[in-house]
Design a protein around this nucleic acid. Structure first.
Lengths: 258, 258
DNA sequence: GGTAGCTGTTACTAGAAGTAACACGCAATT
DNA sequence: AATTGCGTGTTACTTCTAGTAACAGCTACC
């Protein structure tokens, strides 16, 4: 056991409002704690891979090579760990989605790439997916529920993106938030269903979802008198280009930068 | 305690492949058991109302005026009870939706009524909703998960409905299943979000959802070269009328009959 | 040296799901 | 009338897992 003695240099968390101790013995561990959390999250992901979505804390601790109390020093409880795992998954997803946002392409292609990235991730980590998305924690207040949180993050960034588009095109943006959550839910539900009974190829499902998502968006645009060809390369004004940059950046902390 | 002594006459379960005992002492209880299950399910719903979605089996038993083991004679385990509660909710929903299917009206109106019924139910029983929908049971195989089951039931009947429409209109129906699950998920996710932060009226959300659902369906139809006015009263051939009857009937056992 | 803040352990508690074992009541069978 | 099948109900247990207590050691700052 090469324990201890690795306070890991920097890690950029410049100033999160902690009390100004003056004593540098607390400062020193900042980065270390983050690294440790990450380490445990990864162990959890591995444990889920081995044991399935029903892993217990003991299994996770074992996978991480420590005993339970150590885990509980870094995560207040199971929900907290789950939340972190959820974030891990979201980050992964955003890493896959992020780059595709910078690529040019038609709307169809853009939607397709996002959907495809999502389905790719859940196909790659089915157990993790079930652990994070299919499992809920009713014993915790809704606001802190990992799934809700993560879905909200994604839906919010979609909201922001769509909202900017809508406002730029001078359309009523009142429904944007509901639609965003709805679309996210649609993709999730479809993926969920697909994962259980893989009755069609990923490509096919991607196609179908892309189409219906586009139809939904197109309908909103049409009702505002705007018609866009989904297969034409998308022309973005500087405003909207900025938007896509913001939407992605805001979510996948470590991703790209336009 | 007016216990025992109520084997309830008939209840139509004509022949579910039980061993042919010949002894009528087993026959006698058939109906009673069903009635008892229903009774416990209702007690569970009440208990959820009092204690919130985190109710324990003890609470439920107490609410029903019995002790735990009695509960376990009628439900193999918690998941089984949850499944039954889910069915109760689905039945309720179908009772609300069912009648609206027989009413005439434009597509917009029809979609609207269904969405509105759904939102009405979850608004009326928020805790029950959270209990059933937001809570999942990862400790059980996916196939038997209450939520999945109930969503599948709804999505399947939608599938059947849409599929018949599509085939009647000679369009590719390959995506119907995915779309159905997606649409169901969309409504659920939106309702979920709305329930947590009621940032708009139920009417508004109903409008927005109705619009986007119609847009999605309209897109599919348009891509097949068919254009329908969503505000025109819907003309149904005899085939399709039969379909709507079947789709609903298949789900809400006790509902109407065209 | 003293102390802060980690490292780690074993062995416990707490609470909820689910079970065992027992006693009673009714009605069909014998 | 007695037996027997299938319910009624109970209290008190076991089991499982999240979470905790209590203890001991290492390293770096003061």
């Amino acid at each position: 056991m090469s324990h201890i003695s690795r306070p890991v240099k920097a890690v950029n968390t410049p100033s999160r409002g902690d009390p100004p101790h003056g004593d540098k013995r607390s400062e020193r561990w900042r980065g270390h704690r983050q690294a440790r959390r990450a380490e445990f999250v990864e162990a959890t992901v591995r444990a889920i891979g081995h044991h399935g979505a029903e892993v217990g804390m003991d299994d996770i601790a074992a996978e991480a090579g420590v005993s339970k109390p150590v885990l509980y020093r870094h995560f207040s409880d199971k929900g907290d760990l789950y939340l972190a795992v959820g974030e891990w998954g979201t980050d992964l997803l955003m890493q896959r989605i992020g780059p595709t946002l910078d690529e040019s392409g038609s709307i169809h292609q853009r939607i397709r790439r996002i959907v495809s990235a999502y389905l790719g991730v859940i196909e790659e980590y089915p157990e993790l997916y079930r652990f994070v998305v299919r499992r809920n924690f009713a014993d915790r207040p809704v606001q802190t529920d990992p799934v809700t949180t993560e879905k909200t993050v994604i839906a919010n960034s979609l909201s922001r993106l769509l909202g900017e588009y809508m406002r730029a095109l001078e359309l009523d943006s009142g429904g944007v938030e509901a639609w965003s959550h709805g679309l996210v839910g649609m993709v999730q539900a479809s993926g969920d269903w697909w994962l259980d009974r893989q009755s069609m190829s990923r490509e096919d499902l991607t196609d179908y979802l892309t189409r219906i998502i586009w139809f939904a968006i197109d309908g909103v645009l049409r009702s505002g008198g705007i018609v866009i060809d989904p297969d034409e390369p998308l022309e973005l004004g500087p405003d909207l280009r900025a938007v896509t940059g913001e939407g992605a950046e805001d979510v996948g902390e470590q991703a790209h930068r336009g």
